[in-house]
Amino acid sequence: MFAFTYHRPSSVRRAAALVASAEDGKLLAGGQTLLPTLKLRLAAPGDLVDLGAVPDLSGISLAGRTLTIGAMTRHAEVAASPVVRAALPALADLAAVIGDPQVRNRGTLGGSVANNDPSADYPAACLGLGATIITNQRRIEADDFFLGLFETALEPGEIITRIAFPAVKKAAYVKFRHPASRFAMVGVFAAKRTSDIRVAVTGASQNGVFRWQEAEQALRRRFAGKTLDGMSPPADDMVSDIHGSGEYRAHLVGVIARRAVEAAADA
């Protein structure tokens, strides 16, 4: 790691001021991505602003049909929450397959979403459910939030405080994970809420998480796995690396999407 100055503020306001005034400041949530990145010297922030001592950033609450989860809520808490399990089981399922148990005990919802790793799981849930990302400054719809690889609509000094998810019953997340990294080779979050059908794909695209609109349109006729038979997104848009070619990933998106839609339709 390169040297940095460590800060441990006790309010969101103070954290925002610290990160905004730092020349190259970085927020630290669970640290399960940021710390490995720092250790590899792939990032060299001058100031690290730890959100660990800020109160009221974690917790899970259900009001009507809206499930609100604090940004510092650990994946393990979401996976084990009876409230999430009852209101939005697909989200509990998703949290339960992030990383491994130790990573889930540290990693946070807000950290995952703010980082927007192209293979992370939570961005697929946000986009697949049409969640609202709430910051210390405003509310951002998921459709406007994820802008590309590791890029989001967050401005400097803007901090995610919580995320509001519609509690959709007909929803499912299916992940084909890389066995070593535990990241998604392909992960698909499929959801049907009245006429709103969403299919969000992570892990596959060169531009990060995306809605597979061709599939969504087809599913409006009939929300069933079979509807997607033979369909896959353009291979040219997919990641091609030592783990799999673009053609492989495109095929995998089709297969995993069918499974996700089947699971969502049965939910």
Binding site: Q32, D50, R106
Partner: peptide, 29 residues
């Protein structure tokens, strides 16, 4: 491994198993 893969560094932090190679000592304040 020192890359949060292997789990040899697992300890309990406030009762939960974590990989201590991927936690700053200052975070355990």
């Amino acid at each position: 491994c020192d890359t949060s893969q292997c789990g040899a560094c697992t300890v309990h932090l406030d009762g939960d198993a974590v990989k201590s190679c991927t936690v700053l000592a200052l975070q355990a304040e």
